[in-house]
């Protein structure tokens, strides 16, 4: 069994000066004990206070940190506001990714797997779409799954059998598809990888859940002076909008790092990215080129079998 170190923490930055803010939301940090894993973050500092040994016990401080924030997932004026606002951009980005590949059959309904689903912001929205067959959402933290399930009950559509299923498990406890066609059309990973100790083996392992032709979609924050300034310095130190230690800035990943990782995977193709910037009073805005210094989305496709 893969040792999992669930660092449960949720963070939220809010509008910051210079019209830029970043947020991150961690649901699970993950460190598979693969000795020979080639980390795509070769230069990441190893001095992180969160760098536990495989199998290390839960960081109680972080759990309580999370609990204080868990209840605010669905409060429109609460700490997850930016996340809700960002969620609106996820579906158009997914559609953009899909439009770069051969079209799916007209009545094809998508199967989603949302990893690190948190309170269910993305999972719920995906489950409501007319083009969706089912959403499977996993998160190792019991509190967030409790929040998510409770909110699911307020929407009869989401209560339809099979439409939205939450599992309080780490992703590696989810059974792998028995045949390639049983895999998911979309595996999503929003604001998760910046909290993963070794992203490369983690990404490799979740690709197993993708159906050939399916897409891995995610979002994260680039590791730059700006993101350090907005998420570490401003949000945590100056404005104290999020507790200290919410962000592990050294674990942030650059889009080009992810891209070159993807390029090395023989079964992947079709790299897509989109940078978004938070503009106070407006919301998130797509800004060309901002992926290299702020929040960004990425998408990459698993090759079809015949390719």
């Amino acid at each position: 069994m893969a040792p999992v170190r669930p660092q449960s923490f949720l963070s939220l930055p809010a509008p910051l000066r210079r019209a830029v803010a970043s947020y991150s939301l961690a649901r699970a940090a993950y460190a598979p004990p693969l000795a020979n894993s080639t980390s795509i973050r070769a230069h990441s500092t190893e001095s992180s206070p969160h760098n536990g040994h495989a199998g290390s016990s839960v960081n109680e401080t972080e759990v309580s940190h999370f609990n204080t924030l868990a209840s605010s997932w669905w409060d429109p004026h609460g700490s997850s506001r930016l996340l809700h606002l960002m969620n609106q951009h996820r579906h158009p980005f997914i559609n953009r990714c899909l439009s770069t590949a051969p079209p799916l059959p007209p009545n094809h309904k998508r199967k989603y797997l949302d990893i690190g689903c948190g309170g269910g912001i993305f999972a719920e929205s995906a489950a409501r779409l007319a083009t969706t067959q089912s959403v499977t959402a996993v998160d190792p933290t019991p509190e967030v799954i409790a929040v998510a399930k409770r909110h699911q009950r307020t929407d009869p559509l989401l209560m339809e059998p099979g439409r939205l299923t939450y599992h309080n498990i780490p992703i590696e406890a989810l059974p792998l598809p028995t045949t390639p066609a049983d895999g998911f059309d979309i595996v999503s990973l929003f604001e998760v990888i910046e909290h993963i100790q070794q992203p490369a083996p983690f990404l490799r392992s979740i690709l197993q859940h993708l159906k050939p032709g399916g897409w891995l979609i995610g979002s994260t924050i680039a590791r730059t002076g700006t993101s350090w300034f907005t998420t570490k310095f401003m949000a945590e130190e100056v404005l104290q909008m999020v507790p200290r230690g919410t962000h592990e800035w050294s674990q942030y990943i650059q889009p080009h790092e992810l891209k070159s990782w993807a390029a090395k995977q023989p079964d992947l193709e079709g790299w897509q990215t989109m940078g978004v910037v938070y503009v106070p009073g407006f919301g998130w805005k797509e800004v060309d080129g901002s992926e290299s210094w702020g929040n960004y989305f990425f998408g990459v496709r698993k090759k079809s079998l015949e390719e």
């Binding site: 893969a2 999992v4 669930p6 868990a70 190792p140 019991p142 780490p170 406890a173």
Partner: peptide, 13 residues
């Protein structure tokens, strides 16, 4: 595998 322990009080809150 180690999972976060659920605090009944925090859940109630």
């Amino acid at each position: 595998m180690v999972l976060a322990s659920t605090h009944p009080s925090s859940l109630r809150a």
